[in-house]
Computed example of a mutant assay.
Amino acid sequence: MSQSIIAKRYADALFQLGKERSKLDQFETELLTLREVYRDNNKIVSFLKHPRVSVDQKKKVMTDSFQSFSEEIVNTLKLLVERHREDIIADMIQHYIGMMNDAKGIADADVYSVRELSEAEKQRLSETFAPKVGKQSLNLTNIVDSSILGGIRLRVGNRIFDGSVSGKLRRIERELVSTNKR
């Protein structure tokens, strides 16, 4: 079974538990903090994967390091350590965050522009494009790309909205080429 499927199952279980105990937002906050710890500290990952460190030592580090977290999150982490599934923690967090975003009607999107967009511009883009993809809002990540020449290109999941100058030029070129072949 693939690691991603296993990570999704743990995320589903945490999501259901959070729903039952009305702790969905608390779990999300804690998992976002854990994701930052994982990203910023490579030593914890290598420690958890080290074969000479016993499972009990790893579980103790998890308990001590995340003592301010909810019991459910800490127990999930200890369970993952016990089952030698430390490498799926990041994927599990990503699946949980995705489930929370779906529940809130939020989607992640990349917006490509020639320059950095202001918060007001990002907000307008979110308000304009969120309904088009069936969401209430978009978490926009602005990527500066001078090759688009002007305008924007927005990617939400596998949907692309291309209002860039370079995209328009490509469409015009395709039209010209296709009319010349006739």
Rank of each mutant, 00 (worst) to 15 (best):
I5F: 13
K8H: 07
R9E: 14
R9F: 07
D12M: 08
L17D: 05
G18S: 07
G18N: 04
R21T: 09
S22L: 05
E30V: 02
E30L: 04
L31A: 13
L32E: 13
E36T: 13
V37I: 15
D40M: 14
N41G: 07
N42K: 15
K43M: 07
I44H: 06
I44N: 06
V45E: 09
L48P: 05
H50C: 03
S54F: 11
K58F: 11
K58D: 13
K59C: 11
K60M: 08
F66K: 10
S68H: 12
S68P: 05
S68K: 15
S70K: 00
T76I: 01
L77P: 13
L79H: 03
L79N: 04
E82F: 00
R83P: 02
E86S: 12
I89S: 07
H95T: 12
H95G: 13
Y96T: 05
G98H: 06
M99I: 15
M99K: 11
M99A: 10
M99E: 14
M100S: 09
D102F: 10
A103G: 06
D108Y: 03
Y112T: 02
S113E: 01
R115Y: 14
E119H: 04
L125C: 01
S126G: 03
T128N: 10
F129K: 03
F129E: 02
P131E: 02
V133I: 01
V133Q: 00
K135Y: 06
L138C: 02
T141E: 12
V144P: 05
G151S: 00
R155C: 05
V156T: 02
R159N: 05
F161G: 09
F161E: 08
G163W: 10
S164T: 02
V165D: 00
V165G: 01
G167R: 05
R171Q: 12
E173S: 13
E173Q: 15
R174G: 08
E175F: 05
L176W: 00
S178P: 05
S178D: 13
T179V: 14
T179P: 04
N180W: 11
N180G: 13
N180M: 15
R182G: 09
